[in-house]
Computed example of a mutant assay.
Amino acid sequence: MGSARTSHGTLDVPVIDLSGYRRGEPAAARALAAAVDDAARTVGFMQVVGHGIPAGTEAGLTAALDTFFALPMATKLASRPASTAVNRGYSPPRSERLSHSLGVYSPADLFEAFNVGIEAGEYPGLGLPASYYADNIWPAGAAGFRAGVERWFAAARQLAETLTGVFALALGLPAGYFDAFQSHSLDVLRMNNYLVPGDVTLEEGQVGMGAHTDYGIVTILWADPVPGLQILDRAGRWHDVLPAPGALLVNLGDLLARWTNDRWVSTMHRVVPPRDAGGRLVRRRSAAYFHDGDVDAVIACLPGCATPDNPARYEPVTVADHLTAKLTGSRGLVLNAAATHEAARLRPTD
């Protein structure tokens, strides 16, 4: 893995334009593949423009976020799943600890969230486990919420599949290589709300969302242009990241890092309590679309990503086993003992 670049103390998150690739232009595709490979080797985050998601679809998402999170707490709690093992519905503030997915203790995270995902019924005949492909929980009293969320979900899903096509090109793999691993991809959209009341006393080390790497293949993030999101460089320094106008933030997950034998990096990130220029706590919204691959897919080192001098660093793992260990940490609050490689990044290197 290379080193991420900084400019005037700010981490350089490259802007990646998909327009030419989406139009089928060969030269644009080659340039895009090179740019993606460079970003994936260094920072693991990209600012994606030319993604083709209409402004109206984004407006529908933000309206849905505002509608749901403005509901009374008692109404929101009615959409909480019966078990934390069900990655659907509402998660209230202080109910999760994302750093536990790394096996690292932290105080409870301050964000609240609402999750929707792919249901087993979308793929009749496959016998997909309901524990992973659970039915969605749609809240009462949130007019327009489902329609706005479903439109965004469909658009983000299409973009995720486009990006895996770019990844295959960037890695020198045959076109459509990843299709066999995402025919019934276990995708989840997590909508987050960060709003800390002014009279709350924060515990030492308490943040909006604890340090973590994303678990799956690729994440597509819509976020307010408000400070809060930070990513970690190889020297153990945190850097603020704001989305560029019209851009979506895209970052790589653990499964893609494992696939590439760490040629590409799954970047550590967190969300600190968002503040304005005067230091006052402010609201921040985001929506993360996690494209995680088929639950029964086996993730093993990709062709060309291991050599005699750099042998495969990871044992093959199924998507199900990897996600279970991670989610049992963040949602079940059981420290994950299988993430020592990722957790080591929290310690500065020489």
Score class of each variant (00 low, 15 high):
T267W: 03
Y132N: 11
E161F: 08
Y132M: 11
A211E: 15
A168R: 09
M191Q: 10
G210Y: 05
L252R: 02
A170Y: 02
L186Q: 12
I231M: 09
D262C: 05
D179I: 02
D214W: 14
W264A: 02
A247E: 00
Y133I: 03
H212S: 04
G165L: 13
D224L: 04
F181M: 07
I137D: 04
A168G: 04
L173K: 02
R234M: 01
A170N: 01
R258L: 12
L173W: 01
P139L: 09
Q182M: 13
V196W: 00
Y194H: 05
V196E: 13
A211T: 01
M209R: 13
T219I: 10
N136L: 09
L128K: 07
A140R: 09
Y132W: 14
A154V: 09
V207C: 02
E161R: 15
A140S: 14
G165S: 10
I137W: 05
T162N: 10
E203M: 07
I217F: 15
R157K: 04
A142Q: 04
A156D: 00
V196C: 15
L195N: 13
D233W: 02
G210C: 08
L189H: 05
M268L: 14
V265M: 10
E204P: 13
A155N: 00
E161N: 09
G172P: 04
I220Y: 04
D214T: 11
G125C: 04
L252N: 01
P197T: 11
L186H: 15
W264N: 04
A147Q: 12
T267K: 03
R237A: 12
R237Y: 01
L202A: 07
N136Y: 06
G198L: 14
L229K: 07
T201E: 15
D254I: 07
G141M: 11
L169F: 01
A244C: 08
